[in-house]
Simulated assay, not measured.
Amino acid sequence: MEKMREAAAHWVLMHKHPFSILEEEGFNFMMKLGLPDWQKISRNTSKADCVAVYELEKKKLKNLLKNVNKISLTTDLWKSKNQKIEYMVITGHWIDSSWKLQKRVLSFVHIPPPRKGVEISDAIFKCLKERGIENEIFTISVDNASNNDVAIRLLKDTFSMSKNLVCAGKLFHVRCCAHILNLMVQDGLSQIVDITDNIRESVEFVNRSDGRLLLFADIVQQLRLPGRKLFMIVEQGGTQHLRC
């Protein structure tokens, strides 16, 4: 039963199930058939087991990082739509002794607004300090938000005191290429917003009725056009993305 509790905790974490799923009658009926000695696990017990798994994995990661000479970081901030809470995740990237690229989530923390550069800097440094890698940082990649610029500048000043930065910190701050590319695309789309709006309205008009969809398919066949899906503009994080 102890092994099953551990497995249940991993299952909950792996699939993001609520702790209360282990209290469901149907679930416990199924488990009792497969394991007569099965004992119902309460949501509080499940929560405690999941925290125990997290602490164990945290220790394993800290031991793994002891063999890392240089590590690069990526970090991002976003707001959860469901919880209305703002988070920051810090991910570490390094090459191991077998020359394989490794990637691990180092921290996932709640940072309340207004998320100033000082607060971001403190959260990152606290994470590095807890994992014992504050002197092993190679680069940090962030997007072009002004608060990130402040945070990186503060961190660079802090790490420069120990003189552990490669090339005197010239390579320390790496701007996210994906974010730069996204800004370029959004700027380009803003120039054709009238066209994209017309496309969106047309697609919504056709998709609003099964009859229109059938008529659209007939027209495609009559004109012998290659099979294509309709384009739709999808809202993601306040920006618009074309998707087919």
Rank of each mutant, 00 (worst) to 15 (best):
F159A: 07
I21K: 11
K70Q: 04
L64E: 08
S98K: 06
E235G: 02
I21D: 12
R153A: 10
I152C: 01
A8I: 12
A178D: 09
N69E: 15
L215T: 10
C177Y: 15
R175F: 12
R228E: 04
D49F: 01
V174N: 02
V105E: 05
M4E: 11
K126Y: 08
H15N: 09
K100P: 00
S121I: 05
R115A: 01
F29G: 00
L155W: 10
V12I: 15
N207D: 02
I195T: 14
G26M: 06
K59M: 04
V193A: 14
W11K: 10
M1K: 08
E134G: 01
R243V: 15
E2H: 06
I21V: 15
F138A: 04
S146I: 10
M31I: 03
D210H: 01
V234L: 10
N69P: 02
Q222Y: 08
L22I: 07
S190N: 13
V206C: 05
G211L: 10
Q39D: 06
F159R: 06
I71Y: 10
S190C: 04
E55W: 00
L77S: 12
A168H: 14
R228F: 08
K116Q: 09
V185I: 15
A217N: 03
A52L: 05
N82D: 13
S202M: 11
T239G: 00
S42E: 06
N82C: 09
E134N: 06
K70E: 02
E134V: 13
K100D: 09
K81H: 08
E57L: 09
K40A: 08
D49C: 06
R153I: 03
S80M: 04
G238S: 07
K126M: 05
E235I: 08
C177N: 12
W78Y: 03
V109T: 12
H15S: 06
L223N: 03
A217H: 03
I95W: 12
E24G: 10
R200K: 02
D149F: 02
M232E: 06
A8V: 05
K129P: 00
I120E: 07
C167Y: 14
I199N: 00
E235R: 09
E23Q: 13
D76W: 15
N28E: 01
S80W: 08
F216H: 10
G26C: 04
Q83W: 05
K60S: 10
F108Y: 10
R200M: 01
K16R: 13
Q221C: 02
I152L: 13
S209C: 11
Q39A: 13
I199H: 01
D96V: 11
L213T: 03
G92V: 10
I133L: 05
D194R: 10
G238D: 02
N207G: 04
K129C: 05
V51I: 14
R208G: 03
E2N: 12
K229Q: 04
M14Y: 11
S20M: 13
